[in-house]
């Protein structure tokens, strides 16, 4: 098993202003200069406050049971559901990861909300989400670089709570990363603190590739990602 903590500096992170506007149901053409400036300033503040941490571990020889829709890693059986199990079935190894933007942006969002500054609170919340997602993407790319040197590729990444993979399975994922959780903890209902964190699974193997799929591989009609991508 390979364990690794990545050192990603805030200046390596990027927030796309269009994604912040999308989160508020807007396009760039809908925004006035006041809003654009507010978002711009909030992104700068977010980049000052972000405390990026990301870590992963690679586990060899995962076992897949397509009938039971499970993946077994180090004796732990993940009931990932059909989508994740089928997308990763050609994996020779599995990377489990945790990435967090830290608590400060989330705290600032809450503080703004409590002060009655709903717009500022909302923008900081969206900036925090974008940073956590961007951090996961950087981690994904680093894992790809690492395994490419051995002639292997990576799959797409999947997180508990999506594609019908129960969020409660996050507990097992954390257990397998027991000595490196980047300061992220789980609530009794298996949600992460800081909230602006992402955990997940990435397949590694010669016959894998990252697909530019959206939501056509999954049948979860209620999923938030489906709405965002539609």
């Amino acid at each position: 098993m390979l364990n690794k903590e990545l050192h990603i500096k805030p200046e390596h992170l990027h927030v796309d202003i269009e994604n912040i506007l999308k989160g508020m149901g807007m396009q760039i053409t809908d925004a006035d200069s006041y809003l654009m400036e507010l978002i711009d300033n909030s992104i700068s503040t977010g980049l000052q406050l972000v405390q990026p941490k990301a870590c992963f571990a690679i586990f060899e020889n995962p076992q897949f049971d397509l009938t039971k829709k499970t993946i077994t890693i180090e004796g732990k059986i993940f009931k990932t559901g059909a989508v994740v199990c089928s997308m990763l079935k050609r994996s020779e190894a599995i990377a489990l990861f945790i990435a967090t933007a830290g608590p400060q942006i989330e705290n600032l969002s809450k503080k703004e909300m409590a002060a009655g500054n709903g717009l500022e609170g909302l923008i900081f919340d969206l900036v925090g989400s974008e940073l956590a997602e961007n951090l996961s993407e950087l981690l994904h790319l680093r894992i790809a670089e690492l395994v490419n040197t051995k002639g292997q590729n990576v799959s797409n990444r999947f997180s508990p709570g999506y594609c019908n993979w129960p969020v409660t399975e996050q507990l097992m994922l954390f257990e397998l990363l027991s000595n490196m959780q980047c300061g992220v903890s789980l609530s009794p209902s298996s949600l992460m603190t800081p909230v602006k964190s992402v955990s997940g699974i990435i397949g590694i193997g010669k016959n894998l590739r990252r697909a530019s799929y959206k939501c056509n591989i999954c049948n979860d009609k209620h999923c938030i990602m489906r709405r965002q991508n539609s």
């Binding site: 969002s109 809450k110 909300m113 009655g116 709903g118 609170g121 909302l122 919340d125 609530s187 209902s189 298996s190 949600l191 603190t193 909230v195």
Partner: peptide
Amino acid sequence: VAGDLHDIGKNLVAM
């Protein structure tokens, strides 16, 4: 609701 820690949408509606 129980098990969910997200508050931003709820706060916006409340406001």
